[in-house]
């Protein structure tokens, strides 16, 4: 019975994955197989030690910034919004819809909103609110906010992070809201009878019962941080906003450029990061389940 899903899985997941790892050991322009040249680890040498080192490590760092940012920004904010909405404020459904709207908008709309309405140099909403009458180069300013050894967090990437938060917060909020709605009301009641203040109720009663949601949010956030592509690609401007996924795409799409090998090498590095997390998660998760039986 397992054979059919297994075959399908192998065919559409693992065979392409392995092929792309194989391609990362070649130099190939995508035109005919006889142009394919085996170069062993030259692509990895180039991206880790050679001419593309700067791009690669800045991209890895940006993925890391994204991960940290998603945890401390949208996740915290989403949880806070969920907590407020859970209190059944008047009009909470309207707020709920408003916060969730960015998640359901199509990417084309999101790109337009941020590049043309928010971050326009002269007439953008963000420029109007924070520019103090001057034009601000939100998406083009690639200088670092802080820097160490040639790497750092660039200002335009921070602007893109804000745009991502705008979308991610609503998503996290809905997850937590669903979790909080399912918390047994008697728990809160007994907490208040025991004299817990609001913070204590949240910290020692509500938060621990949300553990399954926390696990889901952690997984979603890590995966989102690793595979993030869309908004960054749409808003991607001069430099220092690259992510691993974007380096991969930039090297694979296009014509006649002999960089399918390098694009695959970027993809393989991304794959190694992802699989590392997945293995850690799966083993941990199942170990706990087994020990709790």
């Amino acid at each position: 019975m397992l054979l059919i899903p297994l075959t399908i899985h192998l065919l559409i997941v693992w065979i392409p994955t392995i092929l792309s790892i194989v391609l990362s050991l070649t130099k190939w322009n995508g035109i005919r197989f006889d142009n394919l040249e085996w170069v062993a680890f030259e692509n990895y040498d180039q991206i880790i030690l050679g001419a593309f080192q700067q791009d690669f490590f800045q991209a890895v760092l940006n993925n890391l910034w994204l991960l940290l940012f998603l945890f401390f920004g949208p996740t915290a904010l989403g949880m806070f919004l969920a907590y407020l909405l859970d209190k059944n404020l008047r009009g909470s459904r309207i707020y709920q819809s408003m916060f969730y709207t960015p998640v359901v908008l199509s990417l084309a709309v999101v790109g337009f909103i941020w590049s043309n309405i928010m971050y326009d140099q002269e007439f953008g909403l963000a420029t109007w609110a924070f520019g103090g009458g001057e034009s601000v180069d939100w998406l083009g300013n690639q200088s670092f906010l802080f820097e160490f050894g040639g790497y750092g967090l660039s200002k335009n990437f921070l602007a893109i992070l804000v745009a991502m938060a705008w979308r991610h917060t609503g998503y996290i909020m809905v997850l937590y809201l669903a979790g909080m709605k399912s918390v047994d009301a008697s728990l809160r009641e007994s907490a208040s009878l025991d004299g817990c203040n609001e913070w204590q109720t949240f910290r020692f009663v509500l938060f621990p019962t949300l553990k399954p949601i926390n696990v889901i949010v952690v997984v979603i956030t890590v995966i989102e941080a690793l595979r993030a592509f869309d908004i960054v690609y749409v808003l991607n401007t001069p430099r220092n906003t690259e992510l691993l996924s974007i380096l991969t795409t930039d090297n694979l799409i296009g014509e006649g450029a002999d960089n399918i090998g390098r694009g695959s090498a970027y993809a393989t590095m991304l794959f190694i990061l992802c699989i590392g997390f997945v293995l850690w998660y799966v083993t941990n998760h199942y170990r706990k389940q087994e020990s709790s039986v």
Binding site: Q142, S143, P238, R239, N251, G254, G256, A257, D258, N259
Partner: peptide
């Protein structure tokens, strides 16, 4: 030039304009 290199040159020019 090769499209792949044109991308790199474009980024270098952007770097130059920035600093």
């Amino acid at each position: 030039t090769l499209p792949a290199f044109a991308n790199e040159a474009g980024q270098a020019f952007a770097d130059f304009l920035s600093n």
